[in-house]
């Protein structure tokens, strides 16, 4: 029995890795630009398709393809922010919601045209395998997702804390006017942020593609998941997605066994409500501003 619970808590931790790595980009966009990117899930699905195409056409392993996919998404995200999103991002929040909602539509339906609505999965020899350790099963992809999340969170934190560009992003996220007066070019900072987060979203998407079957319409639930994890962990914090993802993953896993899997959504959104009431800025967020 003890062993079962250890495995269930481990499953929750690893699911936390998948959830957290998906929320990393979403949290950054929200925290820095006050942009709730409703197309976030579709970005991830697009990255999963790209990884699949690279695997099938060029035989490129998804983990080797990751830097390339990151760069493509960085460039695409940079241009998208610079060309389109910057036009509305400083305005009403409603406008950015509308724009990213439209973007999600265009992305999802373009993917149906390009890849058909058929379900796909990035299937490598190790995608369904596990490591056995201490009598527990460590599914390879999920374990790596948690490891990558730890590394990426650390890198993101170092980048934001210690580099010039990172400090520019943080300054802009605190307040745009003073940042502008200090000589920062806000549209460029925003484009850099969106590029970076698009790259991170793509990494999350590859992990999703390895661990689940996906179709062009699968983006919606991913966006909702990232939304919940971001609020739990704290908007715009480097470590928030990790903390939020793990808490949500473990609670869902344990709760789904005690109460039954039907109640997973009740647990998830109950937790969300609780956090919004008790700590509106998230677990790692600064206390009420």
């Amino acid at each position: 029995m003890m062993h079962l619970w250890l495995q269930i808590i481990l499953n929750g931790l690893l699911q936390g890795g998948i959830l957290g790595i998906s929320a990393l980009a979403f949290s950054l966009q929200w925290g820095v630009m006050n942009l709730i990117n409703l197309a976030h899930g579709s970005f991830q699905i697009l990255a999963a398709y790209l990884a699949l195409v690279l695997l099938q056409r060029l035989g490129l392993d998804p983990f080797l393809a990751m830097p390339l996919v990151f760069l493509i998404f960085f460039a695409g995200g940079y241009l998208l922010q610079f060309g389109i999103i910057n036009r509305v991002v400083s305005g009403n929040l409603f406008m950015t919601l509308l724009l990213t909602y439209g973007l999600d539509f265009v992305l999802a339906n373009s993917m149906i045209l390009l890849f058909t609505a058929d379900y796909k999965s990035v299937n490598t020899s190790y995608a369904n395998s596990s490591w056995h350790l201490l009598g527990l099963q460590f599914p390879i992809v999920r374990t790596l997702a948690l490891v990558f999340l730890l590394i990426l969170s650390l890198l993101l934190w170092l980048f934001l804390e210690y580099t010039r560009a990172g400090r520019a992003i943080r300054a802009t996220s605190m307040s745009t006017e003073p940042a502008r007066l200090m000589g920062l070019r806000i549209p460029k900072v925003y484009a850099l942020t969106f590029g970076l987060s698009s790259g991170l979203a793509a990494v999350g998407g590859i992990f999703y593609g390895l661990s689940n079957a996906f179709s062009p319409a699968a983006g919606g639930p991913l966006t909702v998941g990232a939304f919940v994890v971001t609020i739990l962990g704290g908007v715009g914090t480097s470590w928030g997605p990790l903390v939020g993802g793990i808490i949500l993953g473990v609670l869902d896993a344990v709760g789904s066994v005690i109460l039954g899997p039907t109640y997973v959504n009740v647990i998830t959104f109950g937790l969300l409500l609780l956090i919004l009431i008790l700590r509106p800025n998230g677990i790692l967020g600064r206390a009420a501003a």
């Binding site: 269930i8 699911q15 661990s211 993953g249």
Partner: peptide, 17 residues
Amino acid sequence: SAQYPSNATDLTSQLAQ
């Protein structure tokens, strides 16, 4: 016998059970 929400992305704990 259990019911899970549509679009579930993780059923490892149910399988362990």
